[in-house]
Design a protein around this nucleic acid. Structure first.
Lengths: 230, 230
DNA sequence: CGGCAGTTTGAGCACGATCAAGCACAGTGG
DNA sequence: CCACTGTGCTTGATCGTGCTCAAACTGCCG
């Protein structure tokens, strides 16, 4: 691998949870084993079961991690946006990716060579601790996911998703900009596209939200938060 | 903590994935910070949100890791039997347990002090690698769990559970001994107890299995494995 | 014997899936 | 420029899995 990484990406990686707090020498040493990757929207980056050669950091774009069933249905496990890593855990998992990864839109990634990274990790236990913490956090999210898939209904999961992704707008409103097409969001929250459509409509009818394409305005955040809904 | 651990448990721990391949000195050093824990069936070991002081190894018995909903329903995330660790990951997760843990039956555990363990880990990166591998494996299982909760129906999950837990019998039959009461297994596979009862009955009617209390004899393993069921 | 927990069985219902049609919009080619 | 096509989303009608509520049954223990 060579180091054709942009200055901007190097800076961002430098501040990431894995590589922060280290001197320039160390950082450039590991970046010698990192390479930029451009991938077009819709393309598969790797498939479940593929051998693991590297892990990735997202500079720009959106990566969809998903499982697919023999029947062709797919379940979106996670959507990975700019500034985040994915597949670090796979390095330690027997050499095979446990999920598929595809670009949702044109994306710019950085691939960090797995073997080099492991060698670099092995030099200092404190480096491992960051990784352990990152993996723990991800495990926690997975447990939450299992929790909400079993203990909650579709509506509740949608509400949770909306509240998790809501942000104050420049005009002072609380807004969710859907990061991907509705069908992908549907899979993410564990319902079919038709159902998501109906759920959004229901919330709109009840006056809780306003839906306009990918933009969802939250009318009454507190009411949503308490709502067990009917 | 003091070291009142039984010789048998020490030996077993010595061979566990975390502590194998190390000399006696190292091992006894860390075991000075381990303590035996006896817990009666039904008792709560720790609750979700409790501060993490230690992680555990099961010598004998069965521990139920679960989440509970505001409505009082609970979802069993995992059942941990003899020879396995749990809550190692929680050490790195901001100091709070992400799930509840209760003894399913009277159990004998070993609690390993978290702070001491982390200090011990920090001395050598290769120790971290074992832990990373263990956590990766657990993450993989969680992803599988999400997968089957969304992509499969109750019957399929039951079949998967049965096949995963089946063992050859002394009399040559393939048998599953349910490790816990049916209601717990039901929660584990993501259905209500009533539903599990009906599903088992259906499989029995179809001639795939024979159910007698906690003992399930698998009639035709291959047929089960292929069966998408009707 | 009565009480209790775990399990089973039954009847009805609700959530969400499925199947199918229709709509809006963008890109393409005649 | 306008049909033609494809894609994403919506809407409607129907169906099925699994939940809810309720009652009865079992084995177990006081």
């Amino acid at each position: 691998m060579s180091a054709n990484l942009s200055e901007r990406d190097l800076l961002a990686l430098r501040r990431s949870y894995i590589f922060s707090d280290m001197d320039d020498g160390q950082f450039h040493e590991i970046m010698r084993h990192a390479a930029p990757v451009e991938i077009a929207g819709g393309q598969l980056l790797f498939g479940q079961g593929d051998p693991v050669a590297a892990f990735y950091w997202v500079g720009e774009g959106l990566i969809r991690l998903f499982r697919s069933s023999p029947q062709g249905d797919e379940k979106v496990i996670e959507l990975i946006g700019p500034g985040r890593f994915f597949a670090e855990a796979a390095l330690f998992m027997g050499g095979r990716f446990p999920v598929n990864a595809a670009a949702q839109v044109n994306s710019r990634l950085v691939a960090v060579d797995g073997a080099s990274f492991k060698a670099w990790l092995a030099q200092d236990a404190s480096r491992c601790f960051r990784l352990l913490a990152g993996m723990s956090a991800r495990m926690h999210k997975l447990v939450n996911e299992i929790d909400s898939l079993t203990l909650m209904k579709g509506t509740d999961r949608l509400l949770q998703y909306l509240l998790d992704h809501s942000e104050p707008d420049d005009s002072g409103q609380t807004v969710v900009e859907l990061e991907a097409p509705k069908q992908v969001i549907a899979s993410r929250i564990g319902v079919k596209p038709e159902t998501l459509s109906r759920l959004l409509h229901k919330l709109a009818d009840l006056g809780y939200v306003e839906v306009k394409d990918n933009r969802i305005v939250i009318r009454d955040e507190d009411k949503l938060r308490e709502a067990g809904l009917d």
